[in-house]
Nucleic acid binder design. Structure first.
Lengths: 129, 129, 129, 129
DNA sequence: GTGGTCTAGACCACC
DNA sequence: GTGGTCTAGACCACG
C-alpha cells in the first residue's frame, strides 16, 4: 500500500482511508479477491489507531467493497472493481467542482486558473514517472 | 454576498465561511474598508447559527482580513486584498493537488482526467455568464 | 425509553440498541421528527459506553432511520416509521424461523411446540397489561 | 447429520454446532453410545474450519453431552438424551421469549403476531414432510 | 448542551 | 495471526 494520511486534512482520517482504498481498488492496485492489509498492519504503517482503520474497513464493508473472510482477513469483494471505478469519477468530479467553484468565486482569472492547473498537472505527471 | 454553504460538506461550516470571505476579498467583491454583513444578517442569509458566523469572523480577524470598527462593525482590513489574493492561490493549489493526487492514486487515465477537467471548466464557465 | 440491554445476549450491544430503536420507531413510541435520547443520556440510562450508543446511532443514520440536527441531536427521519414497520416484520420473522427450525431439528413434538408458544404468548400478554 | 450452518448468523459458528448437536441428541437423531462424525469429517461436510468443530466438541464434552472413546472418537454420553431434551426446551423457550419481547416492544398487533406465527409454523411443517 | 472523531487498551471469536 | 466489540477518556465543531 502507498497510502498517505494527512491528519491536518479537513477530511476525517477514517474517511481518507476509505477513499484511498476505493481508489486502490479502482486502479487495481489491489485486485478482487485479494486481501487488504490487516487492521493492525495498516494502523502501524500509517501510525494511526487500529480502531480508526477498523472503522474505515467497516465502512468499506457496508459499501460492498470489502468482504470478511473469517479468521483470515478482508478481501476485495466481487464487483468492487467496477463499482469503485464508477465511484472514483464521482468523487473526483465533486472535488474538482469545489476547486473550480472557489476559483470562480475568488474571481481568479480564467487564464491564471488554466495555467495553475497545467502546472499542477505537470507536477503530478513528473512524479508519476 | 453570494456565499454557498453546504452543510453536508466535510468542511466545517465556519471554515466554509472563512474561505468564502477570503475569496470575496481576493476577488474584490468586497473592497478594503468596506463593512462585511453583520453576524446576525449573514447568519440569517445563510440560515446558519450566528455563533458559527461569529466564529468565522473571529478567525478572519485573527488572520488579519477583517478589523473591528468600534460601534460600527467589521471592515475589510488594509492590505487584506493582497494577502487574500496570495492566499487564494495557495488554497486553490492545495485543493488542486489533492484532486490530482487522488486521480493519480486511482490510476485515472491522463486523457480521462483532462477531459473531466475540461468538462467541469466548461460547466463552471457556462454558469459564469 | 424503555430499552433492555442484555450483555450476555449473542447480539452485540450496539445491535441491540439499533433493533430496539427501530422497534420503537415502528411502534411509534418515538414519532417522526422527534429527538431520540442523546448519546450520553442513553448511555447513562443503559449503563453502557457512550461510544457504543454512538455507534448504534451512526448505524441508524446509515439505515435512514435517524437524521442529525446539527448541535441539537438526532431526530427520527421522515419515512422512518413506514420503513421500520416493514423491517420489523422481517426481523421478527427471521428470529421466528430460527426458533421453529431448532424446534423441528430437535424433533420437538408439534403439540408441545404449540403449547410452549401459547404459554409464552400468554406470559407476554400478561405483562402487557 | 443434517446441520445447517449460517456464517452470516450473529451466532458464532461453533455455537451453532453445539446447539445443533444437542438438538440432534434430544431428537434421538443420534442415540446414546453412538459416535458422532469425526472433527475432520464434520468440518468437511459443513465446510467450516476443523478448529471450529473441535471447539464445539470440546464444549459438548464439557457439557457432558459427548464423551471420548479412546482411539475411536466421540460418543453420545449416557444420560445425554434426557439432559438435551430438557435443555432443548430451555433454549427454545429463551429464543421464543426474545421474539415475543421484540414483537411486543415494537407494538406488533397481537393478531398480526399470531398470523405471522401460524404462517411460519405452516412453512416449517410443509418442509417437514 | 449536542454529535463526531480519535486514541489507548482490553477481551472475544475464529482460523 | 485475523476482525469485532467494548470501555474510557480527550478534543473538536456546532447551537
Amino acid at each position: 500500500m502507498f497510502f498517505r494520511i494527512d491528519p491536518s486534512d479537513d477530511l476525517a482520517i477514517y474517511d481518507q482511508v476509505v477513499r484511498q482504498v476505493k481508489f486502490a481498488v479502482a486502479g487495481e492496485v489491489v485486485r478482487v479477491g485479494e486481501l487488504v492489509p490487516s487492521v493492525r498492519e495498516l494502523a502501524r504503517e500509517l501510525t494511526i489507531n487500529p480502531n480508526t482503520v477498523a472503522r474505515a474497513y467497516r465502512q468499506l464493508q457496508a459499501d460492498g467493497v470489502l468482504e470478511p473472510i473469517r479468521g483470515t482477513g478482508l478481501a476485495v469483494a466481487a464487483g468492487a472493481h467496477e463499482q469503485c471505478r464508477t465511484e472514483r469519477v464521482t468523487l473526483i468530479r465533486a472535488r474538482l467542482r469545489q476547486v473550480l467553484f472557489e476559483a470562480r468565486q475568488s474571481r481568479l482569472d480564467s487564464g491564471q486558473l488554466r495555467s495553475l492547473i497545467e502546472s499542477e498537472l505537470a507536477h503530478v505527471e513528473r512524479e508519476e514517472v
